[in-house]
């Protein structure tokens, strides 16, 4: 297994333009030649990407281009979908998470996920946080401390510390989403995948989550799918733009990675016309 903190710069694979677009100093995950299928339908093709340690990477692109599909394949959540299949390699600390003998459960513990719609368990706030450590058999000195620590990191502790025994369903949407983030970090993952985490939240709750992400990136690597260009520009170090390519023969729409680079470069100096059209709102 290759070292996770390989300091040697890594060449990303060339994009379709044939140029090297970026260097990532410390990649924690690399996506190599990945195609994702649902049955016979190829939803995403030929994706090459790397995610830098303690960086926030945004995946953007029009609806249906396969952002969620790619994100789910990063922690094997699409194992749960009948017929979903991944070709190519997804390396996590240099190890293929789809390799033989890899335990998908361990993959998901190390690579957590936050969903578009907050999905707290119908349990107490405390039990929501304690659930992950309990089921994964994490060695914990004090569960109370771990719960407090997770909630504090998710910037929720002050709001809920007096009602830990109350049901999480009673929280507001924004609080529920922060609870879900706290729940995700309770098992001490390396990477947190977020699929439009602010899509169901108001602007204030969204700002809180964005601030929180800035805080979290000190310890975690974050990959976020967002439809909000400003959000990508505000939070992400790097941005990957995807689009759906329509095949001439069958008319099938397949997601492709168009351009990947630092957020500044993507937003200020896009190399691909499609990227420019999309971020300037001239798309489709």
């Amino acid at each position: 297994m290759a070292s996770a903190h390989d300091d040697a710069p890594m060449h990303l694979r060339p994009m379709h333009t044939g140029q090297v677009t970026d260097h990532i100093a410390r990649p924690i995950m690399r996506v190599e030649n990945v195609d994702v299928y649902y049955g016979d339908f190829r939803a995403v093709t030929e994706v090459n990407l790397a995610f830098g340690l303690n960086e926030i990477t945004a995946l953007i692109g029009p609806s249906g281009c396969g952002k969620s599909t790619l994100l789910r394949s990063l922690n094997r959540m699409n194992d749960l979908i009948d017929g979903a299949r991944v070709d190519g390699e997804i390396l996590f600390h240099g190890e293929n998470i789809y390799g033989k003998g890899v335990d998908p459960i361990e993959v998901r513990r190390r690579i957590g996920m936050v969903f578009q719609k907050p999905n707290p368990f119908p349990k107490s706030i405390y039990d929501n946080i304690a659930y992950g450590p309990r089921v994964t058999g994490m060695k914990v000195d004090s569960m109370d401390d771990l719960v407090e620590e997770s909630l504090t990191r998710a910037a929720l502790w002050d709001e809920v510390k007096d009602k830990l025994k109350q049901s999480a369903i009673g929280l507001s949407g924004g609080q529920q989403q922060r609870l879900c983030i706290a729940r995700a970090i309770s098992v001490r993952p390396d990477v947190i995948l977020m699929d439009e985490p602010c899509a169901s939240l108001d602007p204030i709750a969204t700002m809180r989550i964005e601030d929180l992400m800035q805080e979290l990136r000190k310890q975690y690597t974050i990959v976020i799918v967002t439809h909000n260009m400003q959000q990508a520009a505000r939070v992400a170090d790097r941005t990957a733009f995807f689009t759906a390519q329509v095949s001439e023969g069958t008319g099938a729409r397949t997601g492709v990675l168009v351009e990947y680079g630092t957020t500044t470069q993507i937003f200020e100096d896009p190399k691909d016309q499609r990227t420019e059209d999309y971020i300037s709102g001239r798309f489709g």
């Binding site: 459960i105 361990e106 998901r108 957590g112 999905n119 368990f121 992950g132 089921v135 994964t136 098992v187």
Partner: peptide, 19 residues
């Protein structure tokens, strides 16, 4: 979505079902 939340934390199918 509740099952997904559980699996995403590293729970197995039995834990997800029972808990």
């Amino acid at each position: 979505s509740l099952r997904q939340g559980s699996f995403a934390l590293g729970a197995n199918r039995m834990q997800t079902s029972l808990r």
